[in-house]
Design a protein around this nucleic acid. Structure first.
Length: 324
DNA sequence: AAGGTCCTCAACCGCAACGGA
DNA sequence: ATCCGTTGCGGTTGAGGACCT
């Protein structure tokens, strides 16, 4: 017996959303808040399935979304987080609160993957071994098997561990002083009206009244809007526990057997990430406070120049320092 | 200008995870 | 413990715009 369709396929509209549909959806969410997506098509009369409504909201209409033009800083964060987390776009997106997972995924697939590959090929000719640890998708874990020399393998392992620590440090501190450590609670907690106005100008234009009706005294939007933002899934998730993001950051290997994306997403820092995740799991078991984990991360913070180069290989090295 | 190819990204699909009954 | 409905997530697709010949 096959899986029942998520919605009645007959009469369900597909394809691009029209401005009219956007207005209907936004108006409804403004009134009722996001959630209960199943009821949205019924209550709004939209001939869309619930999934489509949710996706349209989370990826396009939701306030606080920044579109296009990824900055170098964002790019670097994505690269590092992807190396760290694999293709867990939602987790990565939680560190870039203005970006949706879909946006990041698209940007990775269309820009960064190619960019890294290009750089990788460029570096292959010059210094194959030094950049294995950061290759975006596949080379080093396999190439390590070619290292029959145990000493070399151990050195590589140590290098990977150091790199994972560095990547974690950078991932956790990259947005300082805004968010430390881990993902920001998202735009919902700190909405920027100007940003919203520019990023969602498409729908704002359609909803002039919405934009002018409810800004409150401090310039943020209405409580209705804020509450809807606070209800959005990623925020909910990260608000559950202060440590959840950190656990999440490290947890992918703890259940690696069930990681369906492991084919290409787990990168060359596998070994080091395992170490990191083992430490995290250990800490979790022992209920160690986060600060101890952080200490573990930072205590061995001296990184040799090769590793720094590897971390920065994808970006202009001269500018990289300015970013942190 | 026209046709072909490439590129981008919004949207869809299907599976996994979650939570309530 | 199990079932079932709902939501979340990641991979993939395809329409349409940009670019090339």
């Amino acid at each position: 017996m096959g899986r029942p369709p998520c919605c009645d396929k007959i009469g369900v509209k597909k394809g691009p959303w029209t401005p009219e549909e956007d207005i209907i959806l936004v108006s409804y969410i403004q009134e009722h808040g996001p959630g209960n997506w199943r009821a949205v098509p019924t209550n709004t009369g939209l001939r869309r399935c619930s999934k489509s409504c949710r996706l349209r909201w989370t990826n396009y209409l939701r306030p606080g979304i920044k579109r296009g033009n990824f900055t170098e800083k964002e790019e670097k964060m994505i690269i590092h987080l992807q190396a760290l987390l694999g293709n867990r776009w939602a987790a990565i997106a939680s560190y870039l609160p203005q970006r949706t997972d879909n946006d990041i995924k698209n940007y990775w697939n269309t820009h960064l993957k190619k960019k890294l590959k290009k750089l990788e090929e460029g570096q292959d000719g010059q210094n194959t071994s030094s950049q294995e640890g950061f290759s975006s998708n596949s080379t080093s874990s396999t190439s390590s098997s070619h290292n029959s020399n145990k000493g070399q393998w151990e050195r590589r392992l140590q290098t990977d561990i150091n790199m994972a620590k560095q990547a974690l440090c950078e991932a956790l501190s990259i947005e300082k002083p805004d968010l430390v450590p881990g993902p920001s609670p998202g735009p919902s907690l700190n909405p920027n009206p100007a940003l919203y106005a520019s990023s969602a100008e498409n729908i704002a234009r359609l909803l002039e009244n919405w934009m002018t009706r409810k800004p409150n005294s401090n310039g943020s939007f209405s409580s209705t809007l804020q509450s809807t933002q606070n209800n959005n899934s990623s925020n909910k998730k990260w608000n559950c526990s202060d440590n959840n993001e950190f656990k999440s950051l490290l947890s992918f290997n703890s259940n690696s057997n069930s990681n369906s994306n492991s084919n290409s997403s787990i990168t060359t820092t596998d070994a080091s990430l395992q170490s990191a995740s083992m430490a995290a799991a250990e800490a979790e078991e022992q209920k160690l406070p986060l600060s101890l984990l952080e200490k573990w991360l930072f205590e061995d913070g001296v990184i040799n120049q090769d590793q720094v180069n590897m971390m920065d290989m994808s970006l202009d090295a001269e500018n990289a320092d300015d970013l942190f």
